[in-house]
């Protein structure tokens, strides 16, 4: 009765549900939700101030609202769920049960992902309603709008959060305070969003007049491999103009996000196995 695969499955589900429930009642969640709903609502007004790219503007605002809500969830709710769990010793609740450290990491991560996935579903429904409403008001300006491209951008945003939350989980296993985890995660996010542009800029400068030294070049190359390139998940502008994103590209970024997250979570498990929980 006490062992076997079925049991292990139930055990993990109970941990995922525990994290999900704890997160779903976090007050920061309500804040993030309200903020993005207000942003979507503002689209209804703001759109009328533009001349003709009304479809683009409403997609921009809605996708940004979703993206921003996702970031708020990650930096407030996930940090609460992961780093504070270790910080405040609520982790004893879980680890006094027959869970290994790795199971803890994966269960927590999947709980957070479940939470973010649900939040995304709700936000996507809300933004779809907003866009549908604007579309019915200004049908003429929505000729090039595409739902499929819109949902592709939402999906890419979800992939970004899969990766970013793995980053949060990773940092919470190596740092001793939730504040440092927050700091590191935000830094990684900022660096990940800008690395591509910085590299392009530096390399172009390199080609033109200011040759970079070997060592700087090497550092850039290493940074490019270590840091996640988060710009690849940003399809908002393309989606706003209904520019078709190929399924090949979507497949590539899906694999990228999955592999990067799995590497982070495996390293987190390794590190966390040795961690002393004083």
């Amino acid at each position: 009765m006490l062992s076997g695969e079925n049991n292990m499955y139930r055990k993990m589900i109970s941990l995922i549900i525990l994290s999900f429930k704890e997160g779903v009642r976090d007050r920061a969640l309500i804040g993030a939700g309200l903020f993005s709903l207000m942003m979507m609502g503002s689209a209804l007004v703001v759109v009328s101030m533009f001349m003709r790219d009304l479809d683009k503007v409403s997609v921009d605002i809605n996708l940004s609202a979703i993206a921003f809500a996702g970031l708020l969830l990650t930096f407030f709710v996930s940090i609460n769920l992961m780093a504070k769990d270790i910080d405040k010793h609520t982790i004893y609740c879980v680890l006094s049960k027959p869970f290994s450290r790795s199971q803890y990491i994966w269960g927590k991560y999947l709980g957070i992902m479940l939470l973010i996935f649900m939040a995304f579903c709700i936000l996507t429904i809300c933004s779809s309603i907003t866009i549908l409403f604007i579309k019915s008001q200004y049908e003429f300006y929505f000729k090039s709008f595409s739902w499929i491209e819109f949902y592709k951008a939402v999906y890419a945003q979800l992939l970004l959060l899969f990766l970013l939350n793995a980053v949060v989980v990773f940092f919470s296993t190596i740092t001793t305070s939730s504040f440092i985890t927050l700091l590191f995660s935000i830094s990684t996010y900022l660096a990940g969003q800008t690395i591509e542009e910085v590299v392009v800029f530096l390399k172009s400068k390199n080609a033109m007049d200011m040759p970079l030294s070997e060592s700087i070049n090497a550092i850039i190359d290493i940074a490019q491999y270590i840091l996640p390139n988060l710009s690849v998940f940003d399809l908002k502008v393309q989606s706003a103009h209904a520019i078709t994103i190929s399924y090949n590209y979507l497949f590539a970024i899906t694999s990228y996000s999955l592999i990067y997250s799995v590497i982070l979570l495996l390293s987190a498990s390794l590190i966390f196995n040795r961690r002393e929980l004083k």
Partner: peptide
């Protein structure tokens, strides 16, 4: 003891028993 603030006692115990394999 410091438990998950946002859970009820019932939910906490549900987790405790399921994680230990109770049906």
């Amino acid at each position: 003891p410091y438990f998950y603030d946002n859970l009820s006692a019932e939910e906490l115990l549900k987790f405790s028993s399921t994680a230990s394999g109770l049906d």
